[in-house]
C-alpha cells in the first residue's frame, strides 16, 4: 500500500514539474496579450503595424519602421553569418584534423555563452568608432548592429550545421569518392545537399536569436525610429523599442509597448513552426528515402 502511495506522489510531482513551465509561459503570453490588446484596439491593427511614425508624445504609434529595423538587421547579419557558418561547419566536419577540431569547437561554443551586453559594449567602444572613421556617419547603423549579431548567431548556425553534416552516412561519402570525385566535389554534391534540412534548422534558430537579441543591438544600432535609407542608417528594432521606453511609459504608450511584444511573439511563433515543419519533413524524407 505504501508503495502505491509513493508511485502516486512521484507521478504527480513529475506532472507538476512538466506542467508548471507550460503554465508560466502561458501566463506570460496571456499577460502580454492582455496588456497589448487594448492598445491594438485603440490604435487599430493596421495603423499600428503599418504606421510610419512612432512618436508617443504626439500619440503616434506606428511600428512599421521598427519592423523594418528588426528585419534589416536580421537579414544583413544572416547574409554574413550563413555563408561563414556553413563553410566553417564544412571545415570542422570534413577537413579539420581531430586536434584542431577539439580546440575550435569549444571555442566557437563559448561565443554563444558570452553575455550579450559584453558584445554590445565591445561594439560601442571598438566597432562604432571604427565605422564612424571608415564609413562616415555616426557609426551607429544597421551594418554595425549586423556585424555584432553575426558573431552572436554564428555559433548556433555553425554547430547545428556541423552536426547535420556529420550525421550524413559515411556510405554516401565513400560512394562518391569511389567514383573518382574529389573531397570538395563530395562535400558540395553529396554531403551538403543531404544535410540541408539540418542546416535550415540551424539558420532559423540563429534567426530567432537575432530577432530576440536586445541589449547588444540597442547599444550600437542608434535607435532612431525611422525607416532606414541605407545600410549605414541608424535603426530601432522592436526589442530595443520596448527596452528603451518601458521605464517612462504610461497609459496607451505602456500598452503599445506590450502590443510591440505581441508582434514579436507572432514572428517568433511563425519561425518555430517553420523549424518544426522542416524537422517533420526531414523525418518523413528519411523514412521514405526522398530528399
Amino acid at each position: 500500500m505504501a508503495r502505491n502511495w509513493e508511485e502516486f506522489f512521484v507521478e504527480k510531482i513529475l506532472l507538476i514539474a512538466a506542467v508548471s513551465s507550460v503554465v508560466i509561459i502561458l501566463a506570460i503570453i496571456g499577460f502580454v496579450v492582455g496588456q497589448g490588446y487594448t492598445a491594438l484596439g485603440t490604435i487599430g491593427i493596421i495603423n499600428f503595424v503599418f504606421g510610419l511614425i512612432w512618436n508617443p508624445d504626439y500619440g503616434l504609434y506606428g511600428i512599421f519602421p521598427l519592423i523594418i529595423g528588426t528585419l534589416s538587421v536580421v537579414a544583413v547579419s544572416l547574409l554574413f553569418a550563413v555563408p561563414l557558418s556553413i563553410l566553417g561547419a564544412m571545415f570542422l566536419a570534413e577537413v579539420a584534423p581531430r586536434t584542431m577540431r577539439r580546440i575550435l569547437r569549444p571555442t566557437i561554443q563559448t561565443l554563444a555563452g558570452v553575455p550579450s551586453v559584453i558584445y554590445g559594449f565591445f561594439g560601442l567602444i571598438v566597432l562604432v568608432p571604427f565605422m564612424r572613421t571608415h564609413f562616415g556617419g555616426s557609426g551607429f547603423s544597421i551594418l554595425t548592429a549586423s556585424l555584432i549579431l553575426t558573431v552572436m548567431v554564428l555559433p548556433t548556425i555553425l554547430s547545428i550545421s556541423e552536426d547535420a553534416l556529420r550525421s550524413i552516412p559515411v556510405e554516401y561519402k565513400e560512394a562518391s569518392l569511389g567514383l573518382g570525385a574529389t573531397h570538395w566535389q563530395t562535400i558540395k554534391n553529396v554531403i551538403f545537399p543531404a544535410a540541408i534540412p539540418g542546416v535550415i534548422t540551424g539558420v532559423i534558430l540563429g534567426m530567432g536569436r537575432a530577432i530576440g537579441e536586445t541589449m547588444a543591438v540597442l547599444m550600437v544600432a542608434g535607435n532612431v525610429p525611422l525607416i532606414p535609407t541605407s545600410i549605414l542608417s541608424p535603426v530601432r528594432t522592436l526589442t530595443a523599442n520596448i527596452a528603451l521606453e518601458m521605464g517612462e511609459a504610461t497609459g496607451l504608450h505602456y500598452n503599445a509597448l506590450f502590443a510591440t511584444g505581441i508582434v514579436l511573439l507572432v514572428i517568433i511563433v511563425i519561425l518555430l513552426l517553420i523549424v518544426n515543419w522542416v524537422n517533420y519533413r526531414q523525418r518523413v524524407t528519411i523514412g521514405g528515402g526522398y530528399l
Binding site: 552516412p169 556510405e171 554516401y172 565513400e174 560512394a175 562518391s176 569511389g178 567514383l179 553529396v190 545537399p193 543531404a194 528515402g289 526522398y290 530528399l291
Partner: peptide, 13 residues
Amino acid sequence: VGMVFQKPNPFPK
C-alpha cells in the same frame, strides 16, 4: 578502379 560496396548505397537523388 571502381568500387561496389557491401550495403547498396545509392545517393538520395
